[in-house]
Amino acid sequence: MKITSSFVAVLLYTFTSMPAQAEPDDSLCATYFEKQIVRNHYFGYGGNPAAPPPIPSHDLRLVETKVVSALPATMAVSAQATPKRFNKIWNTIDAWGADKDVKIIITVDGWHAFAYPGKVPITKAKSRNGFYVIESEGGAGMRHKINTRELSSVYAVKLEASNGRSLRNVSFYDKRGDLVFAVHATEPGYDEDPDLVAAFDQTWAVVDQMPSACTD
């Protein structure tokens, strides 16, 4: 095999341009005291055990990754985000099914909040520079272009309400710990689709296998 200088240059470019392996950023994780505050908000007297994380984040003035990282491991699992892991996680969300109803949650700065009902956004395109395009209803619905290099972590969250139904979501966070968006598979106020519950469990398992976003 003849190794040319251009081949070496391509190899060098390939390896030097690869994004660095993510490391846990513990500054985005709940401290011992913050865990107590968050758990008290959820499970203390008068708490709402299935509150979507943006609510305690706003009420407690805590960056949202600190809220989800404060939850017990039975209720939230996390992964340090990389483009490759985003791809793997979203492949499992594609498998929820393009015809399934979900809700997309957005918050801006932890203050403004929006909940959009719609169908599962499915992978449309991926670019080598980390942008990942998802859209629903064959392009007629929502369309999102996510810069997967600018994410810090992904959490799968499962919170059971007093009526026995659960909030199940997958949340994607930026490098400041703010929510970019979350996908709600089920919510306590609505009937649960067993297929969606099973599909969410697959996503949960994939996130759980990845390196955690927090050291402990």
């Binding site: 929006f114 929502m142 999102h144 600018e150």
Partner: peptide, 16 residues
């Protein structure tokens, strides 16, 4: 169409 850019890094669009 409502559009969010999340600090300029991502673009999320919703028709409705």
């Amino acid at each position: 169409r409502t559009v969010f850019t999340m600090g300029g890094e991502h673009v999320l669009e919703f028709p409705g």
